[in-house]
Simulated assay, not measured.
Amino acid sequence: MSNEVRLVRLFVSSVANGIQDDTPNEVGGNATSPFYLMIEAAAGTTAGNNKVGYTLVIRACSTSGTNTTFAPVVRHEQAGDPNSHWNLTTPGVSNGYVKSSVLTVDAASFEPDGLYEFVGMLRLGDNTASWVRSNEFLII
C-alpha cells in the first residue's frame, strides 16, 4: 500500500465525530438539522510523504424512491496533507496516513420518510479509484 490512496468508510451520525446512526436527523424523538457524514481514508507512506493528489466526490442517492437535492461535493486534495485532515497512522512513525473528516449535511436536502445512502469515490491522477457506500439511513 506504499503508493495507494483509498477511501475506507463513510457513515452518518447525528453528532460530529460520532458513531454510526441510521436515523441521523432524529434526536430525542425530534427531527433536527444538520447531521454529519464521517469520511475515512488511508494512504501508504510513499503516497502521503509525496502528497499524492486525488479528487474526492461525495453524492447522495435514495434507495427508496424519494428525492434528494443534496449537491455533490467535489474536493481536490492531497494525501498526507494535514490541512485535508490527514495524519500519520502512528504519530512520529512513518507507517502510512489516515484521514478522518466530517461533512455537515443539511437534512432539508432529503425528503422525509425516505431511505438514503452516500456514495464516495476517490480518484487518483492515473485514474485508479476506490469507492464506498455509507450506511443506509432514514430521514425523519
Rank of each mutant, 00 (worst) to 15 (best):
I39S: 00
L138Q: 07
T90Q: 06
A42M: 04
L37Y: 00
F110H: 13
V15N: 09
E136Q: 14
F70V: 02
I139L: 10
D81K: 10
I58T: 01
F137S: 11
V132A: 05
G53V: 09
R75Q: 11
N17M: 12
A47Q: 00
V102N: 06
V119S: 06
E77R: 06
A129G: 01
N127G: 03
D113Y: 08
A47Y: 02
N83L: 15
S101E: 05
S101C: 10
V57E: 01
P72K: 12
G28S: 06
E111L: 12
M38A: 14
L103Q: 12
V52A: 12
G96M: 08
I19E: 04
W86A: 04
G120F: 07
V73Y: 00
D106C: 11
L124A: 02
Y97W: 06
D21Y: 14
T45D: 01
N95D: 09
P91H: 10
I140W: 14
R75L: 15
V27Y: 04
N25A: 02
V73M: 00
S94W: 13
C61D: 12
N95T: 07
P24D: 02
N3K: 08
S13C: 04
G96D: 00
G65C: 08
K99T: 03
T104K: 13
D22W: 08
V52K: 06
H85A: 15
N30Q: 13
V8H: 11
I139E: 00
H85P: 13
L56M: 11
N30A: 14
N83R: 13
G80P: 01
V8T: 15
A71D: 01
T32Y: 08
V98E: 10
G80I: 00
F35P: 10
T89Y: 11
F70D: 00
S109D: 11
D126G: 14
F137Q: 04
V15Q: 13
V105S: 06
F110K: 11
Y54F: 15
P112N: 08
W131F: 04
